[in-house]
Amino acid sequence: MKLPQPRAILFDLDGTLADTAPDLAGAVNQMRLARGLSPTPYENLRPVASSGARGLLAAAFGITPEAPEYEAMRIDFLNRYETGLVIDSRLFDGVADLLVQLEQRGLAWGIVTNKAARFTDPLAPLLGLGHAGCIISGDTTPHSKPHPAPLLEAAARLQLAPQECWYVGDDLRDIQAGRAAGMPTIAAAWGYCGDAAPTTWGADELIHTPLQLLDLLRS
């Protein structure tokens, strides 16, 4: 069954449009080096990059938000990351071409991320994404994904009904948020994907490269 055709496509940022894991991993490994520890292997950090400070601190230090030292370490991580947002971060292969082709088809596109605006606002233009139709950060609304509020805010800013938007993301919470907002959802299998297989998330579609999204659009 074909998806209803969209008037806009909304994307998660980290792990969907952009491979930001190298700089996120770099920030947490700076913390380890400052404490006289060896770096955590990148392959252990990349799968949790979408979970931000919580996931990276757990992978690098085995620390959870309940620990008394967690908040100070979280602040340290965020400050380090802020100073190196785009050292090795890049758009995934095919993303820039995909966005051009969406624009040529007259489709709007936007970003809905759980990353705070403190990072999203400078990061998006550095990655060439500053011309998005809307950019909704994790602190734009009172709730972050998997709550539908950020996606509903994005649709409102684009002056569209939620069902006129598709949402593309690489994490279970992206699909949960999209479904809760009444949007068709597409799982991005090239992203970080956490510990779960994206085939189990209940997305309407699963794609393995950014440009495969075009196959879902009627010409």
Rank of each mutant, 00 (worst) to 15 (best):
M1N: 10
P6D: 12
A8W: 03
I9A: 03
F11H: 08
F11N: 07
D12C: 03
D12Y: 07
L13R: 00
L13D: 12
L13Q: 08
D14N: 10
T16Y: 06
A18G: 14
D19S: 12
D19F: 08
T20M: 13
P22Q: 15
A25L: 03
G26P: 06
N29T: 13
Q30R: 15
R32W: 01
A34W: 07
R35L: 14
G36W: 03
G36D: 06
S38T: 15
P39F: 00
P39C: 08
P41K: 15
Y42R: 13
L45R: 11
R46N: 12
P47S: 10
V48N: 02
A53N: 03
A53V: 06
L57I: 06
A58S: 10
A60T: 05
A60W: 00
I63G: 07
I63P: 02
I63K: 06
I63L: 10
T64N: 08
T64Q: 10
P65Q: 01
E66W: 07
A67T: 02
A67C: 07
E69T: 01
Y70C: 06
E71I: 10
M73Y: 05
I75C: 14
D76K: 04
F77E: 00
F77W: 08
L78G: 04
L78F: 14
R80K: 15
E82P: 04
E82H: 13
T83V: 09
T83R: 15
G84K: 13
V86Y: 10
V86M: 12
D88H: 14
S89Q: 14
R90G: 02
L91D: 01
F92D: 00
F92Q: 06
A96M: 05
D97R: 12
L98I: 00
V100L: 13
L102R: 13
L102I: 02
G106P: 13
L107F: 04
L107G: 04
W109A: 01
G110Q: 09
I111Y: 06
V112Y: 09
T113M: 13
T113R: 01
T113E: 15
A116F: 13
F119S: 09
L123D: 09
A124C: 14
L126P: 00
L126Q: 15
L127F: 09
G130L: 04
A132S: 12
G133F: 02
G133T: 10
G133Y: 10
C134M: 07
I136T: 05
G138W: 07
T141S: 07
T141E: 12
A149Q: 08
A149N: 08
P150L: 05
P150N: 05
L151H: 03
L151W: 03
L152N: 02
L158R: 13
L160P: 00
L160E: 13
P162L: 06
C165F: 01
W166T: 12
W166V: 02
D171C: 08
D171R: 00
L172I: 10
D174G: 14
Q176N: 08
A177S: 13
A180T: 03
A180G: 13
A181W: 02
A181R: 04
G182C: 07
G182Q: 06
G182V: 02
M183C: 12
I186S: 04
I186Y: 08
A188N: 11
A189Y: 03
A189C: 15
Y192R: 02
Y192V: 01
A196T: 08
A197H: 11
T199P: 00
T200W: 05
A203K: 00
A203Q: 05
A203H: 01
D204G: 05
D204H: 05
T209L: 12
L213P: 12
L214T: 01
R218C: 14
S219F: 09
